[in-house]
Nucleic acid binder design. Structure first.
Lengths: 162, 162
DNA sequence: CAATCATGGACATGCCATATCCGGATCGGG
DNA sequence: CCCGATCCGGATATGGCATGTCCATGATTG
């Protein structure tokens, strides 16, 4: 029961893109270099963000990625679901139907009681992620990191943004 | 990002064991037959419950499993963690350390801001599961299921309980 | 026209969930 | 006191999926 590596990468990429000036683009190559992860595989995660409408892309030289919405309107949940999918962590295989004491034609009117609890927990998980936006993350990072590193990182980005 | 099949099986087994009279035991063979799942593999999940102290076991003929605590003192979280483990769903690989703008000797004083959000979501998930006990589940099932099926299931169990 | 980029498909690899099987230890009933 | 049933743990297969690489294609910029 692990989230994919790509979820972590996508979130870090979004954090970087949040600091990009309006209208500028950053390539997958630069993003992979900045985070020290394989470029080709990171591209798969970024494609997921693109399909979900979280980022906008441009082709050709000086092309790449930028956020498609203001950072305050993109939540952790949006990013996580774009990469990981929207399936619940709990898959109900309806084993209650295997109960030998059931009439063969019996039809349940509610989902399994166990599944309902597990799905409620998933919902709590999603609500927590939906409550935090990329703007919140940006603010947290500015408090956590020394100004010197922030300054040099921004410089590094602007140097490569098309 | 899926929970194991065994989690579902373990929860259903616990629901059955909740209806067992004090001091009686039910074998892995009966539990697997009742749920229509492979006996050998279900045994692995039950071993997890045993190690976690959730169920008590007895060897020999008429042996098997019973709850080790009152149903009101066993939570969904206990069962899930016994089978699935206690690791967080999000593994932070510290890719922030790969940032080329960081001094090589820089040491973070806090966990990664992204990981903190993801871990908070996991915590909300666990809290939801910790809030529901097997006694709660038992009560829900008695409301959901027709009395006839409940009666026949209980009869089926008592017929096989040692 | 040449270089750079995103996209998507094909392919390889390794790990883990999903089983299955067997031997040993333990216990109940005849 | 023996026989069979049971839990337990280890060894072993197998399939799917996460991880990662490579390449062809089309689009865009300079």
């Amino acid at each position: 029961m692990n989230l994919k590596n790509q979820v972590e990468w996508a979130l870090h990429c979004c954090a970087v893109l949040s600091n990009l000036p309006e209208g500028r683009y950053l390539s997958a190559r630069s993003l992979s270099e900045f985070h020290g992860v394989p470029k080709e595989y990171l591209g798969k995660a970024l494609q997921g963000l693109s399909k979900a409408g979280i980022v906008h892309t441009t082709l050709g030289p000086s092309g790449g990625y930028r956020l498609a919405l203001p950072a305050g309107e993109i939540t952790f949940l949006n990013v996580v679901e774009a990469v990981e999918g929207r399936k619940s962590t709990f898959q109900c295989s309806e084993i209650r139907a295997n109960n030998p004491c059931r009439p063969g034609d019996f039809c349940d009117d509610k989902p399994c009681a166990i599944a309902r609890v597990m799905w409620k927990a998933d919902e709590a998980w999603r609500q927590t992620l939906a409550a935090v936006s990329l703007a919140d993350l940006q603010q947290t990072l500015q408090q956590d990191l020394p100004a010197e590193i922030l300054r040099r990182s921004t410089e590094w980005l602007l140097d490569r943004a098309g």
